[in-house]
Design a protein around this nucleic acid. Sequence first.
DNA 1: CGATGAATTGACCGATGTCAAGTGGCGTGG
DNA 2: CCACGCCACTTGACATCGGTCAATTCATCG
Lengths: 233, 233
Amino acid sequence: MDLLQYRPLLEASQIFAGVSRRTLDHILAAAAVRPFEAGEFLFLQGDEALTFHLLVQGRVKQIHVTPDGHQVLVRFLGPGQEVDPTAVLSGIRYPMAVRAMENGAALTWQGEIVAQFMEAHARISFNVIRMLVVRNQELVRRYEELLTQYVEQRLAQALLRLGAQYGHDAAAGTIVDLSLTRRDLAELIGTSLYTVSRILSNWNERGIVKTRRGRLTIRRPEELRQLSTNSPL
Amino acid sequence: MDLLQYRPLLEASQIFAGVSRRTLDHILAAAAVRPFEAGEFLFLQGDEALTFHLLVQGRVKQIHVTPDGHQVLVRFLGPGQEVDPTAVLSGIRYPMAVRAMENGAALTWQGEIVAQFMEAHARISFNVIRMLVVRNQELVRRYEELLTQYVEQRLAQALLRLGAQYGHDAAAGTIVDLSLTRRDLAELIGTSLYTVSRILSNWNERGIVKTRRGRLTIRRPEELRQLSTNSPL
DNA sequence: CGATGAATTGACCGATGTCAAGTGGCGTGG
DNA sequence: CCACGCCACTTGACATCGGTCAATTCATCG
């Protein structure tokens, strides 16, 4: 069974961390592999939430569409991360869509099966709870940033975070190559693509970053860090 | 043991719903009663999170202070509701403060004891997860409202929600008597107390609401509902 | 009846959204 | 391999929501 190749991934995942190897193998045995292509929606907002996904390869983004049509980019997810488990575990419809940014694959389980594992292994429940707590805190942070900070500061923080999480270092600086458009960045921090464009142009001139079609190099992280902290007050 | 008087409250609570009566009594036996006075902080942001609270009487508000000093009113909680369980269950410090708005009391448990109950009764874990999921969704909603709606709309929605949750109906309309200041409302919807004051004055003139020092009567909910929906787009 | 904090109101202005017009890079099809 | 066309992006002009500050007024409580 080549599913076993994913054992290290499960061990390192948030949800299955600290579970015995025997149990892990049972869990793996119940999984299916779902490949996906760049641009594909793993599921749509409003779909019935039947399946739990754990990414093994490729990055995806979580998108939420507000009642009045605004798109909000909730977060990016990469290999080893769980696609929002909330809906599956509470029997509601998916509150957001998930779209692949690259080709990749995910392990999937039926919702009830995950619930059974949780029932049998309190550790998994605790893991889920910790996960939700962390995401809650992230949301609070973003809410407050939106409330108290200028777009420029939010963008600086967003880039620093993206760099730390998905960037790789090179001579010229930290390179973030996620083929993010201005619109993506705008939806991520809650602003318009025009404002993002203006700010990036400005930073380009000042040599703080260098942009090239969906690819971005952070040349002076210290300056970004400083920009991110001088608050409006 | 007069703790037993609280059994119906526990049965109706989110966290202990669906638990057998025997277990409920064990849980009750492990509780302590903590009375509090209006204005008192049950705990402060940054305190070590050792205790889990379930309100039995009186209302409290959850407050979060951002790094740059802004206060954000996260939510109100009333009898039968759990004070944010996240910190206690994941062993971190309280991420926010809780302050009593009125005299009241809460049942309290040591964090580890709650964890033990959760371990023994998967149902409780599931309840906690459902709770977190709901709060997550609320946060997303508020984030998006902040992003896409005018202050006037947000205020209208907030008042409608407060009316539905805490108001009582009278001849003149729905009365909300929470001794909320303009500042409270401002922190709740993410704006300044001046803007709230202006909007309420305006609504007063138009006969939509009637305000009196911390007390508020909604006279024309339909108009509020309409105000809350005509979006900026 | 004074004092203290809540609330009101006016004046001002600045960050950022919106719209419109243009530029440029990349992929595709001929 | 080139040219075309499509998007992503840029940039300017303009409008405006709502924040900030300051000066009063008002209500409530000791």
